[in-house]
Simulated assay, not measured.
Amino acid sequence: MPKLKTHSGAKKRFKLSKNGKVIRGHANTSHLLNGHGKTPKSKRAMRGTTVTDKTNVAAIKRMLPYK
């Protein structure tokens, strides 16, 4: 059976934890962080990473076959 290719967009955006959970960053953090509609509370919340919702986990793991 041939090797599977890793999805290059997924490998830049997701990683797997030791327990197999899919870790992702928060959205809407690329620009407009200086008082243009984002509150300090929302900017603090977007700082770290979070676990991906269970409805998307199977598709993401299919895109990352060797992780």
Rank of each mutant, 00 (worst) to 15 (best):
H36E: 13
H31K: 13
A27D: 09
T55C: 03
H26D: 01
S30D: 11
T52M: 15
G35H: 06
M63Q: 14
G9H: 01
Y66P: 00
P40I: 05
S17A: 14
R13H: 10
P65L: 04
G35A: 03
A45I: 04
L32I: 10
S30A: 13
K54V: 12
M63K: 15
P65R: 05
T39M: 04
K38Y: 09
R24V: 10
V57Y: 00
L64Y: 10
G35Y: 06
T6K: 04
Y66C: 00
K38N: 14
T52Q: 13
G48L: 03
A45L: 09
V51K: 04
K43C: 12
A27F: 09
Y66D: 15
Y66S: 11
R47L: 14
T49N: 02
K15N: 03
V57W: 00
G37P: 09
L33G: 11
K12Q: 10
P2G: 08
N34S: 09
A10C: 11
M1V: 10
V57N: 00
T50W: 07
P65Y: 03
F14G: 01
K38R: 15
A59H: 11
S42F: 08
T49I: 03
T49H: 04
G48V: 02
H31S: 12
R44E: 13
I60Q: 02
T29R: 15
G37T: 09
M46W: 06
Y66T: 13
K61I: 00
N28V: 08
M63D: 08
K3R: 11
G48I: 02
T39A: 07
K67H: 07
G37Y: 08
A10P: 01
K5Y: 05
K38H: 13
S30T: 12
T50Q: 11
L32F: 11
P65M: 04
G20C: 06
H7E: 09
P40Q: 12
T50S: 14
T50C: 12
K54Q: 12
A27M: 11
A10N: 04
K67W: 13
M63F: 07
G9K: 07
G48P: 03
